[in-house]
């Protein structure tokens, strides 16, 4: 049996167990069953897919884009200037341990119910990991290769683009794979705290209405978002970063 088949089989067993348990408990607002979740997803499809999903997707995409820009910039600066590394690396490691969930209310305090507050939650959940992974990737550059480039007369800029960027690319992609689920969680939490649409906001509203199936429906969509995103990154990785195993 292939690995995929085992995975599918165990997922099916879990789903079935869950369905049976939910039917036994028989309290949809506390433990919705997979079937009732799907039914609710279908019933609420219009607002979920046309309003809330796009809103959350927007925050994730914009937030990740911002995080990538900031992360790459910091990584490059740290790689270029050892003093910058000494200054910010320790800080980054400390800040990374702060759970975004705990400080997100602050963002609402600072920015109100604006897009910025939500973006900040996504950026803060992801950019540290992107920075540190990419920085490590840049540091992986083989000294011998760099010296070879120097013997060809290459300056820092050439060495950066022709050697360092390709060397660091696998690490950068890995950091995207790691942080994408965090971005999804960050976005959902931020919407939970302060938004008027989005899957996080939606699940909170359904919670107050004790509609457990609808809460699960939005959670299902959030997980699907993360899964699809990761598959996309993996596909890019396989197609473009064929040298990963040789670094």
């Amino acid at each position: 049996m292939k690995k995929n088949h085992v995975g599918l089989l165990s997922a099916a067993v879990v789903l079935m167990g869950w369905q049976l348990l939910a039917m036994a408990v028989n309290m949809t607002h506390i433990l919705p069953s997979p079937v009732s979740t799907l039914v609710r997803l279908w019933e609420l499809r219009e607002s979920l897919f046309l309003t809330h999903l796009p809103a959350t997707l927007e925050i994730i995409v914009l937030g990740m884009a911002l995080a990538i820009i900031v992360g790459l910039l910091l990584a490059i600066l740290m790689d270029m200037f050892p003093t910058v590394e000494a200054m910010i690396y320790p800080t980054l490691v400390v800040i990374q341990t702060i759970p975004v969930m705990c400080i997100s209310p602050l963002f609402v305090l600072w920015f109100g119910y604006s897009l910025w507050a939500r973006l900040l939650a996504v950026v803060l959940s992801t950019f540290f990991t992107i920075t540190i992974n990419t920085f490590d990737g840049l540091k992986n550059t083989k000294r011998e290769m760099q010296e070879l480039m120097q013997t060809y007369g290459a300056g820092r800029l050439r060495i950066f683009f022709k050697l360092k960027v390709p060397t660091a690319l696998p690490n950068f992609i890995t950091s995207l794979k790691i942080t994408l689920p965090w971005a999804v969680i960050g976005a959902a939490i931020a919407e939970w705290l302060g938004a008027s649409k989005g899957l996080g906001y939606f699940s909170k509203r359904m919670m107050t209405k004790l509609d457990g199936s609808a809460v699960f429906a939005s959670v299902l969509l959030l997980s699907l978002l993360a899964l699809i995103g990761i598959s996309l990154i993996k596909w890019i990785d396989r197609k473009w970063v064929v040298w990963r195993s040789e670094m």
Partner: peptide, 28 residues
């Protein structure tokens, strides 16, 4: 004034054979 060939081949794995060979000319 000199062309150096290291002990390890140090070919760049993200470049094709052709692109590797062209690297010094690209830099120049």
């Amino acid at each position: 004034y000199c062309s150096y060939m290291p002990q390890k081949d140090l070919l760049f794995p993200w470049r094709t054979v052709e692109q590797n060979v062209m690297l010094p000319m690209e830099v120049a």
